[in-house]
């Protein structure tokens, strides 16, 4: 009876007792979810264009943020530093295309996945060799103050992240759906050889998509780095993106956002109301559990494409 009360009655009574706090928890979850979505978007872009799960996305976030903050520490004005970092990420995309992807055209996806694991270590090492391992403060002028609206606490930094993510998603949605390059990206993802046969420049497409993914990594790096300082642990935020991708679908930009928001809310609500019953710190594995349960009913995710292969 006590177990029943702990898991099925007390949490809901608590919610009903303090709806303002529940709202605050939900908003907190949405804000955290936006941050997860920023990372998940980078995975989605690469997956859409090459059908590969880019294991190195977290390391790309670290590399981009380290480059930006490293330039700023050397007194490069912020706008110039962002432009230079983006140029570095484009250069990196070209190197990846030339030395990693091009030799692996038409190889099985698992081969490309293994190459991405290697790439992850290259980014981790290169970033630390170039800019060191110390925590670096990243301040690009985003306000961090908190304020209350109707008793609900909001943070200016979180709101900025949400607006940034919304703009980014709008831009990417138009890019993929409405432009010739976007359509070409999707064609390449479906079949490298077929795309080549109809004249789609595979090399250029790959450089573009890895560059855009580098840009998304930079935005995610700025937001996460601004929150916790730029440091190696940025690599680990990729772990937060995985349940988002499972839920939202690996090839859907809106899915990354909706998945992120759902995971964020689910994490926070479960941690606050059910966490104490489990000893706390359940949000991490609860997110994965939710994603796994969801997989049982909809393996392609909320917005993923249902693949039917004839045999």
């Amino acid at each position: 009876m006590e177990v029943l009360n702990t898991f099925l009655i007390a949490p809901f009574l608590d919610m009903a007792d303090s709806p303002i706090f529940l709202l605050e928890v939900v908003i907190g979850g949405l804000m955290a979810g936006v941050m997860y979505s920023l990372v998940a978007l980078g995975f989605v872009l690469i997956y859409k264009a090459s059908g590969v799960f880019n294991y190195a996305q977290g390391a790309m976030v670290l590399f981009a943020a380290l480059t930006l903050v490293g330039l700023m520490e050397n007194h490069v004005p912020i706008i110039v530093a962002i432009i230079l970092t983006m140029a570095v990420m484009v250069g990196v995309a070209m190197l990846i295309e030339r030395y990693m992807l091009r030799p692996l055209v038409n190889q099985a996806q698992i081969i490309l996945f293994m190459a991405c694991i290697g790439l992850n270590f290259v980014f981790e090492g290169a970033g630390q060799i170039a800019w060191g391992s110390n925590v670096k403060k990243l301040d690009i002028g985003i306000p961090e103050n908190s304020f209350e609206i109707g008793g609900v606490l909001l943070n200016a930094f979180d709101l900025t992240a949400a607006i940034t993510a919304a703009i980014l998603v709008a831009f990417l949605a138009v890019f993929f759906q409405k432009t010739a390059i976007g359509r070409a990206l999707r064609a390449v993802a479906d079949d490298h050889q077929a795309a080549l046969s109809v004249g789609i420049p595979l090399k250029t497409i790959w450089v573009i998509v890895w560059s855009v993914s580098g840009f998304v990594a930079l935005v995610a790096g700025i937001m996460w780095g601004g929150k916790a300082g730029v440091q190696f642990s940025l690599v680990l935020i990729a772990l937060k993106a995985l349940p988002v991708l499972i839920l939202g679908g690996f090839e859907s930009v809106p899915g990354a956002i909706i998945g992120g928001l759902l995971i964020g809310v689910f994490e926070k609500v479960s941690e606050v109301y059910w966490g104490p019953a489990f000893g706390g710190a359940i949000e991490g594995w609860f997110a994965y559990m939710a994603a796994l349960v969801f997989l049982m009913f909809r393996p392609q995710g909320l917005f993923g494409e249902k693949i039917i292969e004839r045999v």
Partner: peptide
């Protein structure tokens, strides 16, 4: 007692409880 999962980049839930 409030636990935060490794590595600790996301701990909003814990701080919301502290606020409450």
């Amino acid at each position: 007692v409030l636990a935060v999962d490794h590595p600790g980049q996301e701990q909003k839930a814990a701080w919301l409880q502290i606020r409450r």
